[in-house]
Design a binder for these strands. Structure first.
Lengths: 352, 352
DNA sequence: TTTAAAAATGCAAACGTTTGCGCTAGTTGT
DNA sequence: ACAACTAGCGCAAACGTTTGCATTTTTAAA
């Protein structure tokens, strides 16, 4: 027994990976016994189990997930695709997805799309190649065709979308009520006396931005405010887009007295332009963003925004995945979970 | 031929995964032929290759990376461990690591430590379990014992550290010159007339913060400024830490006329307290942060900071990994790449 | 002591892919 | 016609782990 051990410790110096076979050889048992002992199988005696587990520890045995996944058909990996990284919303969603899934023995693979359709397609291929057990995703801004997402579905792999989903896809979805969020924002701005409310919209081929705009339009109507098409401009909602659009609004003969931007980065750009032009915020022009990015509370004045409950979204997305795993039936209807958002009023739109 | 195809198309409806065996069966060739045809092996005739590749396309064949990695001993995955997610610095490093490695056929697995030692250990275990070909990491603030990183090394898996490294580990490293960066900051503050410069330090058990503090101390001496220990406070460098420490500095009988914070989040917290207390920045107290987080340019006044060249760090870290793969010899010396940082002067410390 | 039952293993094959070496059919040269 | 060579495959085993079923060993009862 000790001769065998010494022989194998020596072997360990040159070849770094310990496998079940190595343990089996040292102890003079079969690999299946080692596997069963490591997995506390009742068919293995206590004595053998202890010997195997101690030897595994001594030889630095590390289970090989590749082999396990190949054999079992399950990798216990979940791919999480997000469109951008430097965003408090997506960071928080990822964190909460991870917490829920880690508890159930899953690990996540984070894939970043950088708002690019091509990168997104590469990510999906990589994740499928890696045999993930499921994919949780939010769609990149550049993405119009959803063929790649359909591909996931066709392979029978659970797909859950959050925030940015797609009407054409019959898959599970978690998001907030974009339409109603706009109502809340417009009501708030109307309540503080605003009458000419402009909207920096995202691309309306993206469902969430379309709903935010529909909400904006209907809320204006509800409050008997005239709809001025020149006060609606679509953009990619980056800081530079917010700056450009805000400049356009300032050049109008009829200036707005409030601006609702469908994303916080665009709101930040708009704020920068307002301050640079000596416009008093919120006295002359009030400002509301969307998504509660961290910086909205750092800047001056702090920006009012919509809290999208990223924690809840992350948790719910992970739970939907786990339910899909437990009920693999393809015929079950899809879930759409819509969470009410919340307006956070700060200096940029506060009533004085 | 068509009977075989129809039989298999039918089979595809129920079992979602197409393997090389399925293609082999339809075409009446062996699995090894299919594999070779898919990999453009010269041992396979053009006719067979085309037939195989077309059938693979028709049957929706997706290579199984698990099997490939198991067979070859290489997963072409690289684990990237970062301590926090909502940071422009780490986001940018990750993005640049990914770009370089994707070009070489590698995919990355991002693991977040949330500044926790325990989470970091779990991440390392998960990555080893997943048979990554290498790990690129920045150490969590809570981590003192480096045993888990040693474990990576002992398994012969390439390990590259960036930014936050460890003196005890003989591994490749990329970072900036923290000592010299402090000199640059102090010189700048001295040039604008500051005489009582306080330092919000990170934990000095972390090498980078220790070097930043040493640089601070030596730069004061170099400029014949008196060192006041009450103007140095260690902290975790979060926003709330910056607030707390700044409040302490404001309560001193001898107030500082400048504050150098070893991280931008702490600088932001300090700025908030200064503004809340009606202190004019930079006229009464100048402020400099570290890391060039996005928000440093959004807030008012914009915060002077150190640009850590995250792009270069990411690229270099990935390149060091690739070199390790090309030269697997264990005896080669480790690389330490130190990049000069750059001071970005903004409103918080600008000369008027 | 013998027999039967229970406990504790071991064998073989599965998972998907790749690759060294062997085999076969066809072609070319003598 | 025969021998040698080459192109184009196929066989079998590797990679690490798990699991159904068979086999062996141990224990208890007659």
């Amino acid at each position: 027994m000790y001769k065998r051990l010494r022989k194998y410790i020596k072997k360990m110096k040159t070849s770094k990976k310990t496998s079940i076979k190595d343990i089996a050889n040292v102890l003079g048992v079969s690999p299946s016994t080692v596997s069963r002992a490591l997995n506390n199988n009742s068919r293995i005696s206590y004595k053998t189990r202890v010997a195997v587990q101690q030897m595994a520890e001594k030889l630095g045995y590390q289970p090989n997930q590749l082999a396990n996944a190949l054999r079992s058909g399950k990798s216990y990996l979940v791919g999480v695709i997000i469109p951008r990284n430097n965003s408090a919303f997506f960071s928080s969603v990822v964190e909460n997805i991870e917490k829920v899934l880690n508890k159930e023995g899953y690990n996540i693979i984070i894939a970043l799309s950088y708002e690019s359709y091509e990168k997104e397609c590469n990510n999906i291929d990589s994740l499928l190649f890696t045999q993930v057990d499921g994919i949780i995703a939010s769609i990149a801004n550049e993405t119009i065709e959803l063929d790649y997402y359909r591909k996931i579905k066709e392979k029978g792999i659970p797909l859950i979308l959050f925030d940015r989903g797609g009407d054409d896809l019959e898959v599970d979805y978690v998001g907030i009520d974009d339409y109603n969020s706009s109502h809340i924002i417009i009501d708030h701005l109307v309540e503080r006396g605003c009458k000419k409310i402009a909207h920096i919209s995202g691309f309306s081929h993206k469902r969430i931005y379309k709903h935010r705009m529909m909400g904006y339009r209907d809320a204006l109507k509800k409050n008997n405010l005239k709809l001025n098409e020149r006060l609606i401009i679509e953009s990619n909602l980056r800081i530079e887009d917010g700056r450009r659009v805000m400049k356009q609004f300032l050049e109008l003969s009829e200036r707005p007295d409030a601006v609702y931007a469908a994303g916080d980065f665009a709101a930040l750009g708009a704020l920068q332009v307002l301050l640079e032009n000596g416009v008093k915020v919120p006295q002359e022009i009030a400002l509301v963003g969307f998504s509660n990015e961290s910086f909205t509370s750092y800047v001056s004045p702090p920006i009012s925004t919509i809290n999208q409950h990223s924690e809840q979204i992350g948790k719910k997305a992970a739970e939907l995945f786990l339910e899909r795993i437990k009920n693999p039936s393809q015929e079950e209807g899809v879930s759409k979970v819509i969470i009410d958002a919340q307006l956070i009023v700060r200096g940029s739109s506060d009533k004085i």
